[in-house]
């Protein structure tokens, strides 16, 4: 699980162009949206594409993302349970 969390942090930084940020800057329980990393709606769509492309998870209801993308912890837990690749 720790390796997956590290991978998620690296991918999020790269995919969402979080310049000047390193994986060490993101705590596992940091809020990804709102007052946390400050991600926006386009970032949420990028995360949905990332789940599909990297882990074979298709979110049919974007509203699911609200809980899945709450933090690195919630993302890693969801991916571990649902990944197909």
């Amino acid at each position: 699980m720790d390796a997956l969390k590290q991978e998620l942090k690296e991918n999020i930084i790269e995919q969402l162009n979080l310049e000047d940020m390193t994986p060490a800057d993101i705590a596992d329980d940091d809020m990804l949206f709102g007052d946390g990393l400050g991600l926006d709606s386009i970032d949420a769509l990028e995360l949905i594409v990332m789940l599909d492309k990297n882990y074979g998870i298709k979110l049919t209801d974007p509203k699911e993302g609200r809980t899945i993308f709450e933090s690195i912890n919630t993302m890693a837990a969801y991916i571990t349970e649902h990944r197909s690749k």
């Binding site: 969402l16 386009i42 970032d43 769509l45 990028e46 594409v49 599909d52 492309k53």
Partner: peptide, 9 residues
């Protein structure tokens, strides 16, 4: 086929 929303906008 993985179009990027961040590119598309």
């Amino acid at each position: 086929y993985y179009p990027s929303p961040a590119v598309f906008v």
